[in-house]
Structure formats: structure tokens, C-alpha cells
């Protein structure tokens, strides 16, 4: 068995070095659509963190008993289980938000990141570490979406979390309506990816033979 990964590395990898969105552009479908408002994105981010962390925990806890042939099915089942709980809770306790997010909470099931973490990490590591790994992979993902949503809401509506921002809500700023429409999401994510990759590339040339 390979040596156990260090806690600190897991956290940093999830948030930055191996951030699922930047590295692999994975799983953006289920969440990009709700990034036109910061509040919606925050709730969506919490949903993803909740699902990734707890499903990694559960997959890891069951890993010694789960038969190999049905592993993927069990993983899907566990992920769907947590998504259903979250969706139902939202419906019961925050109906307005549930209506805003529409089908996108349910679509977390098909988010490749969650299955990816379960397959790549939780299957081979103890529950505690898997939980941390899932939590920070989800958090890294949520952070990127949060940045996208802050840019979109600020430029498009002149506000953040519905609170008007100085300058951007004044007459000096001509609101970029396009930012809250679908194309804005693509452009914003593209620019953020561009920045991330350029920073990463600069780092890698600085430390030859450093991190992968």
C-alpha cells in the first residue's frame, strides 16, 4: 500500500494545485448556470461540498466490504442519496432558493468531480482523510464558482449578494447585462482559467523539477 498522503497536501491540492476546474475543467455543467447571482452560487457550493465530503466519507467507510464489480453502482447510489437529502431539505426549508436553483441541485449527481474523488481517493484511504479530501475538492470547486459569480453579479448588476456596490451601482457604471446572461459565464470562466494557468506555468518554470 502506498504511503498515506499528508493532510496539508490534500488541502492545498484541492483548493489550488489540483483544483478540479482549472486542471481538468470537470463538472462545471451542474453549477455554471447558477453563477449569475452570488447567493445562488454560495448555496450551490455548499451543496457540492456537502455531497463530495460525505460521499467520500461513506465510500471510504464501506471500501473494505464493497465488492469490486458493483463499486461504481454503490458510489452512484451514495452520491444520489446525499443529493436527494440536500434537495429535499432545500425544498422544505428554503423553497425560494429551491425554485431558483431548479434542476441544478439534482444534476450534482452527474458532476464528475464527486465520482472522481470517490474513485481516485476515497477507495484507497481511510474515512477521515477521505472526508477532508472531499471537503477541500468541493471547496476548491466552490471557490472558483464564487469568483465567477462575484465578477458576473458585480459587472452585470452592480451588486454583490444583492447589495449595491459603490461605483458599480452608480450612473458612472454602465451595467454589462451580457455578464448575467449565459455568454458572460463562459467568458468569465475562460479568463479566470487563463490567469490560473499562466500563474501555474510561471511557477513551474521557476522551480524546475518541482511539483509535477
Amino acid at each position: 500500500m502506498r504511503s498515506q498522503p499528508k493532510m496539508q497536501n490534500i488541502v492545498l491540492d484541492g483548493l489550488w494545485g489540483n483544483n478540479p476546474i482549472f486542471r481538468q475543467i470537470l463538472g462545471i455543467c451542474s453549477a455554471l448556470a447558477v453563477t449569475n447571482l452570488v447567493l445562488n452560487t454560495m448555496v450551490m457550493g455548499i451543496a457540492v461540498i456537502f455531497t463530495t465530503a460525505l460521499s467520500s466519507l461513506t465510500v471510504s467507510a464501506l471500501r473494505r466490504w464493497t465488492p469490486r464489480v458493483i463499486r461504481m453502482m454503490i458510489e452512484t447510489l451514495i452520491i444520489a442519496f446525499y443529493v436527494i437529502l440536500f434537495d429535499q431539505a432545500l425544498k422544505a426549508y428554503w423553497p425560494d432558493m429551491s425554485r431558483n436553483l431548479g434542476p441544478y441541485v439534482g444534476l450534482i449527481i452527474t458532476n464528475c468531480i464527486i465520482m472522481g474523488r470517490a474513485e481516485a481517493f476515497a477507495n484507497a484511504n481511510p474515512p477521515g482523510l477521505s472526508f477532508i479530501d472531499g471537503f477541500f475538492s468541493g471547496a476548491g470547486y466552490a471557490c472558483v464558482l464564487l469568483v465567477v459569480s462575484i465578477v458576473r453579479e458585480l459587472l452585470g448588476m452592480g451588486s454583490i449578494l444583492g447589495i449595491p456596490m459603490p461605483f458599480f451601482s452608480s450612473a458612472l457604471w454602465d451595467r454589462w447585462i451580457i455578464m448575467v446572461m449565459p455568454p458572460g459565464a463562459f467568458f468569465t470562466l475562460a479568463v479566470i482559467c487563463w490567469i490560473f494557468r499562466s500563474v501555474q506555468a510561471a511557477k513551474e518554470t521557476q522551480v524546475p523539477g518541482g511539483k509535477k
Binding site: 447510489l77 442519496f81 436527494i84 437529502l85 429535499q88 425544498k91
Partner: peptide, 23 residues
């Protein structure tokens, strides 16, 4: 594997149904 799948599904469904009924 079949028994395992069955039991897991049963357990998870029970929780979901319980929560659904409560809410």
C-alpha cells in the same frame, strides 16, 4: 454483491423516505 447492493439500497432508501415523509 447482489445482497450487498440490496441491503445498501434498502438502507439508503429508508432514510430518504423517512426524511421525505417528515418534510
Amino acid at each position: 454483491p447482489i445482497l450487498y447492493m440490496f441491503i445498501t439500497t434498502l438502507l439508503l432508501s429508508a432514510v430518504v423516505i423517512a426524511f421525505g415523509t417528515i418534510t
